[in-house]
Structure formats: structure tokens, C-alpha cells
Design a protein around this nucleic acid. Structure first.
Lengths: 141, 141
DNA sequence: GTTTATGCAAATTCTTTGCAATACT
DNA sequence: AGTATTGCAAAGAATTTGCATAAAC
């Protein structure tokens, strides 16, 4: 995994690329799916959880990650692939397997838009499907 | 708010209608929007939070409520209006206002369906929009 | 040398459980 | 009597903060 990539991403979003932040960004990049704080903790043993937490908070403020709630174990974080700093225009559908408790990105399924009633201003959208993933279906029926 | 209605609902889902459960069901019915455990606690002062929690757990097991994650303060619970005990066929879009932290039901906006890749089995869906509600927009621009 | 970032430990918040007491049938 | 339900208090789990140290600029 290319370190330059993470650095570029951080700088592009106006986040100073410190060693911790690069590690967190790389972990998210490598995972290719949304990770929870706890999952990041187990992946990056060299950083304290408070450090990871603060990195994520910063990323969130700078629109570098978006936040996914899957009802599994709290929220998950996913790198924004959008090039727009203000809006998350790459939003896709997520799938949470209730058996293995993994969250999948269905990258090529865009979230179908809805029209909101007058006065509601949209910022972000979450489209979360829950059920059983192919692996678990094969194994358990 | 009619007590009979809550009792009917409980019985219909195979939950014995005890006084606590009726109170929790009534609170959800009255609210007309998803409530968190904490919100229910402040609304129903006569029941301990553990009692509310256990009622909600039971409701969930009997498909009497569905669970909404809005990233606000943990999960919220909403009465199922569906008459199907197994599937939530009344799923509509929810809106979470990031200013006043309220969750709205957009009842007449159904969740647009997506086609899942092969092997994924859908159970439930959450479509959550975040942004600013009309009230907050008027007040703060 | 001042500001920024980090690690550790502790505080906070919210959810969940153990258990004795109560109500129900 | 025997089972199910409830309240209280305490345990658990996860997130968030305070503060002193260390690094960066």
C-alpha cells in the first residue's frame, strides 16, 4: 500500500499528515470497507485508541471519511473517494451481514435519491441493507 | 391515546400486555417518531430504564418495533405499522436533523429499492437522510 | 520557544445483567 | 405454589476528555 497516497489524501483535505494519521488513513484504505474504532484498534497496535479516535474526529471534520451506522458495533468510518470536499457524492449502498457482522460496500450500487418534503435540507444519506451475505448463506443455508 | 389500541398491538404480536409494556407501546404510539431508550426514559418516569429496555427487547424479538440507527444517540425504536409479523413492509425514509438532533419519519416517502448482487439476502433496510429540518432552517438560516 | 500531537489513565455515557422482591395465574 | 415481571443497583462496553510528555515547526 502506497504511503504517498495516504499523504496526498490527507493534504488534499487540509489535514496535516502526521505519522498516526497516515497509519489510520492507510488502514482505512487497505480495508476497503468501513471500519469501526475497535476494528482500527486491533489493526493498528502501535497507536492508542485515543489517537485513532482523534484522527478519525479530524478526518470527519475535514470530510475525509464518512460515517456509516450499521447497528453492529457502533459507527464505522470509510474513506471518502469523492473529490468534492464538501459533499459526499460517492455514496453507495452498504450491506451488513447479521450473521458474520461484516459490513460490505456495494460500490457499484448508488443510493437511489428521494425527494424530500419542502424545507428539509439534505446533507448526507445512509442506505443500509441488512441480511445475510453470500458466504454465510453458502455455509448455513 | 387509546389504551385498547396498544393492548391489541401487543396481543397481535404475541406479547403479553403487562402494564409496563402497554406504557412503552403507548409512548411509541404517541410520539409518532422513533424514540431512543433515553427518550423513552424521560417520557415514562414511572418505569425503570431496565424495564423499558426489556420491553423493547421483547418488542424487537416479536417484530413489533423496528430499529433505526441515526447516529444521533444510539438506536431508536419505532412501532411497526405493518401487519406482517415477519417482514417490515412499511419501511419509509427517515430524516435526522443534525441541529436539533430529532428524527423525523417521512411516512409517505417509501424507500426506493435496489437490486443486490447475487447471493446477498435482504432482511431489512434503513434509509437515513441527515441535514437540517425546516424548523432549524427557519431559525438559523 | 511556542504550538501541535501523542499516550496514558480516568471520566463519561449508555446499555445490559444479577438478583431479590413483587405481581400474576 | 410456581412462573413471569419488575426495580434497584451494579457491571459492562465503548467513546470521549484531561493532562503531562514529546515532537514538530
Amino acid at each position: 500500500m502506497n504511503e504517498q497516497l495516504s499523504v496526498k489524501l490527507l493534504e488534499h483535505h487540509g489535514v496535516k499528515p502526521t505519522s498516526n494519521r497516515i497509519l489510520v488513513a492507510k488502514a482505512l484504505e487497505t480495508a476497503q470497507r468501513p471500519l469501526s474504532l475497535m476494528e482500527l484498534e486491533t489493526r493498528i497496535k502501535t497507536i492508542d485508541k485515543s489517537g485513532i479516535f482523534r484522527a478519525l474526529t479530524l478526518f470527519r471534520e475535514h470530510h475525509m471519511v464518512h460515517v456509516i451506522e450499521d447497528g453492529g458495533d457502533g459507527v464505522r468510518y470509510e474513506l471518502c473517494r469523492s473529490h468534492d470536499d464538501e459533499h459526499d457524492d460517492d455514496m453507495h449502498v452498504h450491506f451488513f451481514c447479521e450473521v458474520c457482522r461484516q459490513t460490505y460496500c456495494l460500490d457499484n450500487i448508488k443510493i437511489p435519491p428521494v425527494e424530500l418534503p419542502g424545507g428539509f435540507v439534505m446533507n448526507t444519506v445512509n442506505y443500509m441493507v441488512k441480511g445475510m451475505c453470500p458466504n454465510c448463506r453458502d455455509r448455513r443455508g
